[in-house]
């Protein structure tokens, strides 16, 4: 055998490329890091890119929602068959109470209209709604929000209020072409101007990432986050009395939420804050009502 044939017969050792996989990993990591920095400092880019991502995933989320919701519905139906008699009795009692309250409500509404006409109060524009389907719900430690299956193409706008059976759910914070995101009342970034039913106290209702909401800013007394009063009441003024079970309504200040819609009920009153709970069943969300923006009319 010739020498050069021996050399050619020896197989070269396989060189294992360690560099490229590590380089690829580093590139991905740096891209993710730069993207997070860029979107954090540029809020507009963050909103636009998240809306685009939301549109892209809305179809998949909607498709996956149907079997899960059907399964939940079937399970709930099966479970409810075991306590049909109790539920029936409870519903009959509720129906009786509501019938009695309905006639009282009609009388109060008629009296309210008569008084408004006498005082010549300018009639408020009734808000219009559009029903939108819920396609996903996110209750993470970072944000409490709900995803809806309609977007800019259907006339949905940012900051529109969202209701469920005439109760406030939240407001729209991001809008894509075909989907949008609703910030729930329980999110810490949510602040709603409210007024209490009986005491007439006005304040700001804020979420704190739990199932309850807190009224921290009360008319005439500013409560700080530490629980201390910043501005005390004037001499002779009494702290307004707030009772448990009192309804909380939107006051309409700020122009985002329409006036007079239920937000929740007072569940606890402490010296430093008032705790409110929403009456919306988050497990049964299927359709919500989005308030349409007012169209301002210009007099020629």
């Amino acid at each position: 055998m010739k020498p050069w044939m021996i050399l050619s017969a020896v197989k070269r050792p396989q060189t294992v490329n360690y560099l490229w996989p590590r380089l690829k990993m580093s590139l991905f990591f740096m891209s993710a890091f730069l993207l997070s920095l860029l979107t954090y400092f540029d809020a507009h880019l963050q909103t636009k890119s998240r809306s685009a991502l939301l549109d892209a995933t809305a179809f998949i989320t909607d498709l996956c929602r149907w079997p899960a919701q059907t399964g939940s519905f079937l399970t709930a139906s099966l479970v409810s068959h075991f306590d049909v008699y109790e539920k029936n009795k409870k519903l009959r009692d509720e129906n009786r109470t509501l019938r009695a309250q309905h006639s009282l409500t009609l009388a109060l509404a008629a009296e309210n209209n008569r008084l408004r006409n006498k005082l010549k109060v300018i009639k408020e524009i009734e808000p219009e709604f559009s029903s939108v389907r819920v396609i996903g719900a996110v209750k993470s430690p970072y944000q409490h929000n709900v995803l809806l299956g309609s977007g800019e193409k259907e006339g949905i706008q940012v900051k529109s209020a969202v209701l469920v059976d005439r109760q406030i759910l939240g407001r729209i914070i991001e809008v894509g072409n075909y989907s949008c995101r609703v910030l729930l009342m329980t999110d810490p970034q949510s602040h709603i101007p409210i007024v209490l039913e009986k005491s007439g106290v006005q304040g700001i209702l804020s979420g704190d990432n739990s199932s309850l909401m807190r009224i921290r800013v009360v008319e005439k007394t500013l409560i700080s986050s530490t629980g201390n009063a910043v501005h005390s009441l004037k001499e002779g003024e009494q702290r307004p009395k707030v009772a448990k079970g009192e309804y909380v309504f939107t006051s309409g200040q700020g122009g985002v939420f329409p006036t007079g819609f239920v937000v929740g009920r007072v569940v606890e009153v402490t010296p430093h804050e008032i705790l409110v709970q929403s009456m919306i069943d988050m497990t049964q969300l299927e359709y919500v009502q989005v308030v349409k923006p007012y169209e301002e009319s210009v007099d020629d």
Binding site: F29, S31, S36, L38, T39, V138, S140
Partner: peptide, 24 residues
Amino acid sequence: IFGSGLLQDGLFGTPLGLFGCLNL
């Protein structure tokens, strides 16, 4: 891995790229 992180960022509402970084 990067794409699933982006999906989680979009749905959770966290800054884009955060979950991508963490997953990687």
